[in-house]
Amino acid sequence: MAPVLTVKDLSVRFALHESEVTAVNNLNFTLEAGETMAVVGESGSGKSQAFLALMGLMAKNGTVTGQALLGDVDLLALSKTELNQYRGRDVAMIFQDPMTSLNPALRLKQQLAEVLVLHKGQDQKQAEASAIAMLERVGIPEPAKRANAYPHQLSGGMRQRVMIAMALLCQPKILIADEPTTALDVTVQAQMLDLFKTLTDDFGTSLVLITHDLGVVAGVADRMMVMYGGRAVEKGSVDDLFYDPRHPYTLGLLHSTPHIAKRAERLDPIQGMPPSLEHLPQGCAFNPRCAFAFDRCMVERPALTAAGEGREKACFHEGPMRYGKVA
């Protein structure tokens, strides 16, 4: 089957006062129908900017190049009005803070129905009924009653559920979730992740989960893409990357994440700090923080190349990667 989304050479640049930074650099990936792909990275890795660009939601000083093929339509070549047709209908996005995406002055059913009236041409009554049905699907108790509420009357978890309901109303092919559970409590986060799993299974929606939390990734994603300094540094199945990371950054992230089941005396953090996009190091962007870096890494940037079945990495080292003392 053809992938739902094929992204080719996606680059996002921002003009600053006197310079220009490249927030996303030559990103290539495909998204299969019904799969969940996690995009992992720290602040400044470009993980959010890449997808905001796909949705046409960039800041004013940004420019995008490349292709994002949804079927045979290039999302990046569309005008604002054309893009509006696809946005919400075929591709939906939810954010960390649901309050910023909900209109505080409108009742929930009005906001939800508006999407259906706009994209599906349903009449108001019909749309409201579908909206209430969707609220029930995402696990909101007493949906008919809650539909009359205003956003501020709901708790954080409920608001995020409403956002998901809104995103799924048109049964989009792709749902992009940018740190959807970061602001939520652990027990509510668990409910949310569970909801994502059932919903992607039921609707066949492909989910892009942008997160910094490897624990969240392990629970729901099928594949993952690790980003660093605006580029993808490793891609592959979740199991491959967790149990056999081939890029030192992936390895470092794994060793930086405390594990509830293991009480290690010390974590093995990555030294130093994420790079500033304005001053990316020469050669491999990760080299100042890399325990494995050698001469070549300082001058030449490794390209993203195949590293076995269905996986790619951008590193000159061959074979499995382990810290000396780690079993």
Binding site: P141, S155, G157, M158, D185, V186, T187, V188, Q189, A190, Q191, L193, D194, D213, L214, G215, V216, V217, A218, G219, V238, D239, F242, Y243, L254, T257, H259, I260, A261
Partner: peptide, 26 residues
């Protein structure tokens, strides 16, 4: 319940375990 809700950075363990889904919110 809290323990089962904590995300585990280990895909196999994460898939195996059942989350003791706490009802509702605080």
């Amino acid at each position: 319940a809290l323990l089962t809700a904590v995300p585990i950075p280990d895909p196999r363990l994460a898939r195996q375990r059942t989350i003791d889904g706490l009802k509702g919110e605080i």
